[in-house]
């Protein structure tokens, strides 16, 4: 008697798993298998650490994008915003406004977070108060942030001038805690925080509601504009966090910093199972999507399968196949 009950509950819990939420992880696992087949070095600790570490920028930005997209918005400006935030941060580091390397770096970090939040706030307010499609607004700010960066760099690059400062800041990207690189820890912290906000707080619930149906949200007493604007602010802060670990890597912002990151972030979000039309947000899926994107590039370089001219085509195909897997699992 008790046996059958156990069996029944177990069966039920398996069929209850939302396959669509699991799909990105399945795709990731398949990709791991494929990578291991292509090149045994792929599974080396160094290689995997490298790949996960450098996926940090896109992963962290994509967590913000998950909020924006879940609420029914879109932000195309994140790539340029990264360059702009990185540029202003380095200029501040070069200004010598604060004495002492640690204090200087900490102040610059706070400044970067504030700059990111303000950039996001601008996107949010123009979208909601101006009642303009987010696609257009963020396309506009994308150009603005990019141009401002190039202007600040006077056409070249903005690099940290002081070698001591550079050396002091460098470990933020390159060192680790108990073998886990700091950027990876950042991914986990940002994603956990994002998941907490999206799934466990009132604000997160409101984000989902606004993305599902703006009118229902309004009739339920939710301030739609406030919720939307805050998602853009979150996006801005995520961009700034990504910049905090981007700057120590190469110590410079250039005209190519963050180029096309917006598309990678959106792709990661969609691969992760978040609906572009809003209403469904999957933070861990997004992280998975960012890893998939980075792994595909890595596997391509490690393998000798295709000519370097065709890598883009293979990457595109793998992304489409990942989406097809997800669709077919979702349909059951």
């Amino acid at each position: 008697m008790s046996n059958t009950t156990v069996v029944q509950t177990r069966r039920r819990s398996i069929s209850d798993i939302d396959l669509r939420a699991v799909a990105p992880f399945v795709a990731l696992a398949v990709l791991f298998g494929f990578g291991a087949m292509v090149n045994p070095n792929f599974l080396g600790l160094d290689n995997l650490t490298n790949v996960v570490t450098r996926s940090a920028f896109i992963a962290i930005i994509a967590v913000g994008a998950t909020f924006v997209i879940s609420a029914g918005g879109l932000d195309l400006s994140v790539g340029s915003m990264s360059a702009f935030v990185a540029g202003t941060m380095i200029l501040f580091l070069n200004s010598g406004a604060v004495s002492g390397d640690t204090g200087m770096i900490a102040t610059a970090m706070l400044l970067a977070l504030a700059t990111g939040a303000l950039c996001g706030l601008a996107n949010g307010l123009i979208t909601t108060l101006g009642r303009i499609e987010p696609f257009i607004v963020t396309l506009g700010t994308m150009g603005i942030f990019r141009a401002l960066t190039i202007y600040l760099a006077e056409g070249g690059s903005i690099a940290i001038k002081s070698q001591e400062l550079r050396a002091a800041y460098r470990p933020i990207y390159f060192s680790d805690v108990l073998g886990v690189p700091i950027p990876v820890i950042m991914i986990l912290v940002v994603a956990a925080l994002g998941a907490f906000i999206l799934y466990r707080t009132r604000f997160g619930r409101h984000v989902t509601a606004v993305g599902s149906n703006e009118e229902v949200a309004r009739y339920s007493g939710i301030s739609v504009n406030r919720v939307r604007t805050l998602t853009y602010v979150i996006q801005g802060v995520c961009v700034a966090i990504a910049v905090l670990i981007y700057v120590p890597r190469l110590g410079a912002a250039t005209a190519t910093t963050g180029l096309l990151w917006e598309l990678q972030a959106i792709t990661a979000v969609v691969i992760g199972g978040t609906a572009l039309r809003g209403g469904v947000g999957r933070i861990w899926g997004t992280i998975c999507g960012a890893l998939i994107l980075e792994l595909v590039g890595n596997i391509m370089v490690l393998s000798d399968l295709v000519s370097e001219y065709l890598i883009g085509a293979v990457q595109g195909s793998i992304i489409i196949i990942a989406m097809l897997i997800q669709r077919s699992l979702g349909r059951r």
């Binding site: 190039i150 760099a153 006077e154 005209a255 190519t256």
Partner: peptide
């Protein structure tokens, strides 16, 4: 336009 370092140099 200055889209990478070298073209930035050209503009300069």
């Amino acid at each position: 336009a200055a889209d990478h370092g070298w073209t930035g140099g050209v503009v300069y």
